[in-house]
Nucleic acid binder design. Structure first.
Lengths: 414, 414
DNA sequence: TTGCTTTGTACCGGCAGTAAACAAAATACG
DNA sequence: CGTATTTTGTTTACTGCCGGTACAAAGCAA
């Protein structure tokens, strides 16, 4: 091939991507702070902002602003364009699927969800979800720049197979990414050309979303632990990037030993976090049997919130907090994050007795003893969905000029 | 302050750093591959190489090369300048210290070591080591661009205190980095101005060295486990950069549980890797009592190598391999590295029965079951020392123009 | 009103790096 | 043996990002 590999695309206005990311994460409300955050001159920041505006991604409000008491000429404000392009984000969970159009800044523009039992055939669900998303796009008339999907199982890289999707009745190794991309192609969504459909683990994506727009903002190394239905998931964001390991299987934290005399786990060991600190374990520890109504998470959460006075419930909560703390302490010794956020049942456990959890972690971790890690609850609604959107937005954040590609195509093929 | 924050220094020939790193790690033997590796034009690669040569870091050999059978005009060869500047690297270990001058490419130019019991006062040892290094510099007449130190304990960031330096009889929390810098300042080493003396954990630095020059070359996510004297150390290199956590305490892998019924550990738990898979544990498992002669590692290594036929030794090795494998499997589930390298006793254990270790890891890790991680022995001599040198070289690799700063100063102060 | 401070813009210049043409040094093939 | 081909290195414009500076704008303070 005669393609001489150049760096052309990687260069072009190199400050453009970082600038968009700053506005996207709410860290650049004005051109002035854009100037200082980027470390460029005012001239450059102005040019960059103008270019982002020309791309239809941000809006500069140059009306006389209410002076905020500070001296000097007031800044013009930078906003993300509320009518700008969106990405298609989907999430598959134990009870159904949810699809949303998400703009920059993690703003959910429109959403639709399908409930009911997920059939054993992933292709069918994906087609249904993509069709729903396509419908949203038609209804809203938004331009779509990409698509991504969050699923509740490990996603093996580089091909994106779902590994052990236990609560979906899908076969392990199902080529979810390929099926998703095929569904996108068959739906023929205009504009979904630059980004061909990403897929990721739901907890990973939740962590990404929380890092950019939620409880993880500003953290450099963010650890996220969550339990939604069965088992425990983990995720790690390093320097703003998801660490999913060389084959996408990092942070499979479910098999940390937290109870040497505990229940046997399907991994062959016993007392794994997976079987000792998920909703089912909590219900069991409280002496309840899971009912047919509502998800395990819902049942566990309701029990925790409504019957915390009940000594058996309280004891079960304490037990799970201790186990979770042990697992977190192990992770802290290995990863030494500067913040930890908890989702799902673990978020509720943290809410029930924050001090107990922090004490366990501090006692059992080297760093805990010498200071301690902030442990916070997740704050974002639909964080997996927003995280999927982050995945889909990433190419644009890396180089905002890619939005031009679709326009070229629309303008007229040669 | 009127210092308007510019990006000046970050720009200036942005391909210079990556180019030097390529030559430094042996991945750019000619300008031609430099061209393709950097993704720039031949013109740029040529200019960059010329500039690195002008800086006195590399040498271009333009003599007629022995044609290697390939077609076309033969490339000129790129070499690191063997007479170029060096950095001062030091290592403190249980039996003494070692100091070396290290050039680019991890080449040890000169070395000196001091044996004997390390006194309880860190400042004294550091002064002695720095004096030895200063002597080396005077003897060789080399220009020195920086200094760094490897110590066998966790190094707390951002200030560089030694945490729990168990085998050094130093107080925990000793401000090693500050003491090291003070020793450097008092020794008045000319040139050590740009880099003010780094400090790091020895296993971390060994991993860094192996990643750049040894068994870890080419790995993206490299996990290193090693046991030298007491306890077990770990390190992780991500995308070519050491991951030492937000406060420098990452990869404290010693407290992974690998034997629920095991010996109590000072961390409060029992059966930790620290007490179940270090040289002392091996000697104990083989029914030997450590003697006064030689380090624990040496005794364990000798036993393993010379008496492997002895059933009790063999059984002890198998036991430690199983425990180590369990620990590694846990780490693989969490970090999903694409390569693992083992040092110290663990390197010997791997050599004794590679298949057993790989089988345990494969059986107990999610990723292991679906493919497996390469597990290799460390290959570099004095890898901690070379790793310390990497730390000291880093500013130059980031921006080779910093070597001019010292020259300016030497040329003549205003 | 006159400063002072901060923000935004216009214009110039430096310079890294592309592109293209040319030169050099080897092999391949008649 | 000589010419074509291939690969590498170099020279010469030329493009475009961005720094620097000067100037204008828009608010406070006195």
């Amino acid at each position: 091939m005669t393609h001489t590999r150049t760096t052309r695309l990687e260069r072009g206005r190199s400050a453009l991507g970082p600038a968009l990311e700053l506005v996207h994460t709410g860290r650049a409300p004005t051109r002035a702070v854009l100037t200082s955050e980027l470390g460029v001159t005012r001239a450059t920041a102005g040019a960059v902002a103008a270019e982002l505006e020309a791309l239809g991604l941000i809006v500069v409000d140059s009306r006389p602003t209410s002076s905020a008491g500070s001296q000097g000429r007031p800044s013009h404000r930078l906003f993300l364009d509320e009518n700008g392009p969106v990405v298609l984000a989907g999430q598959i969970h134990a009870d159904g699927y949810r699809v949303a159009l998400v703009g920059l800044g993690g703003r959910i523009v429109a959403t639709v969800s399908g409930c009911g039992t997920i059939p054993a055939d992933p292709a069918h669900v994906l087609a249904e979800a993509v069709a729903a998303g396509s419908g949203l796009l038609e209804r809203t008339g938004r331009r779509c720049l990409g698509a991504a999907l969050a699923i509740p199982s490990a996603v093996a890289e580089p091909d994106g197979e779902a590994l052990n999707p236990l609560h979906l009745a899908w076969p392990s190794g199902a080529p979810v990414r390929r099926l998703f991309r095929r569904a996108l192609a068959e739906a023929g969504i205009p504009g979904v050309t630059t980004a061909v459909g990403f897929t990721g683990n739901d907890v990973n994506l939740a962590a990404l979303a929380e890092h950019r727009h939620g409880a993880g903002r500003g953290a450099r190394d963010l650890l996220c632990i969550a339990s939604g239905h069965r088992g425990v998931g983990g995720a790690l964001v390093l320097d703003g990037r998801l660490h999913s390991g060389s084959s996408g299987l990092a942070l499979e934290v479910g098999h940390l030993t937290v109870n040497p005399e505990g229940a046997p786990c399907h991994c062959g060991s016993r007392g794994c976090l997976d079987v000792e600190a998920d909703p089912l374990a909590f219900l069991g520890a409280a002496g309840r049997t899971p009912g047919p109504e509502g998800s395990l998470l819902r049942q566990a959460t309701d029990l925790l919130r409504e019957e915390y006075q009940d000594p058996s419930v309280r004891a079960a909560a304490d037990l799970l907090i201790d186990r979770l703390g042990l697992g977190i302490a192990g992770l802290v010794n290995i990863l030494n994050p500067d913040r930890i956020i908890l989702g799902g049942l673990h978020r509720e456990l943290l809410g029930a007795d924050p001090e107990r959890l922090r004490a366990v972690v501090a006692e059992r971790s080297l760093w805990g003893r010498s200071g301690g890690v902030p442990i916070l609850p997740c704050t974002l609604d639909h964080n997996s969905l927003v995280g999927a959107a982050e995945l889909a937005w990433q190419p644009v954040l890396d180089d905002p000029l890619v939005v031009l590609e679709g326009e070229d195509r629309e303008a007229g093929p040669v």
